[in-house]
Amino acid sequence: MASLTVTDEQVGATKAKVIQPAWVRIMHWVNALAMILMILSGWQIYNASPLFGFTFPREYTLGGWLGGGLLWHFAAMWLLMINGLAYLVTGFATGRFRKKLFPITPSGVLHDVRAALTFKLGHDDLTVYNYVQRLLYAGIIVVGVLIVLTGLGMWKPVQLYYLVALFGDYPTARYIHFFCMAAICAFLVIHVLLALLVPKSLRAMIIGR
C-alpha cells in the first residue's frame, strides 16, 4: 500500500508541473501573431492621416500602402477578436482569471514593484503570478477589450453608434484606439524582456512545463 501512496503523489506532482495548459499556449501564440499583424497594419493606416507630428517608418508597416494596410487590419481583426473572445470565455469559465489574476491588492502590488526594482522578486513558482504580473496581465486584458471596442466603433460608427457614444465621439475613439496600441506596445516590450530574463517562463508558454 505504501508504494501505491507514493505513486499517487508522483502522479499529483507530475500534474502540478503543467504551468500553462494547452489552450492558454495556443491562444497566447495566436494572439501574439494577431497583435503583431494588427499593430503593423495599424501603423500603416495611422500614417495615412497621423494624429501626432510623426509617422511610423515604412519598414515597420504592413500592406505597402493604406489600402493594403486596411486589408490586413480587417483580416487580422477576425483572428484577434475570435481568439480574444474564446480566451475571455475560457478564462472565466475555467476560473483561471479568478485563480491566477486575483486578488490584486495595492499593498501587494507596491511590495512586488519594490521587490522587482531591487531584483528581489523571485520566480521560483511559475504557477503563481506575483502582483506585478497580475496587474499587468489583468490590465492588458482590459486594454485589449478597449482597443477592440474602439476599433469596432470606428469601423461601424453608424451601426454601432452606441459604442462611439460610449467613448465620446469618433475622433475621441480614434485617440483611445491609438493610446491602447501604445499601451500594448509598451506591455510587449516589458513582457518580452522579462520572458527572456526568465527563460523557463518562455519554455512553459511553449511546451507547457
Partner: peptide, 24 residues
C-alpha cells in the same frame, strides 16, 4: 518577409493577396 507578402509594387505574392481579397 511580411512586407514581401503584401507585394503592392514589386513582388506579387498571389496567395497572400488572394487571401486578403477573399477576406475583404
Amino acid at each position: 518577409a511580411l512586407t514581401l507578402l503584401t507585394g503592392c509594387d514589386v513582388i506579387d505574392s498571389s496567395s497572400a493577396e488572394e487571401m486578403l481579397k477573399q477576406v475583404s
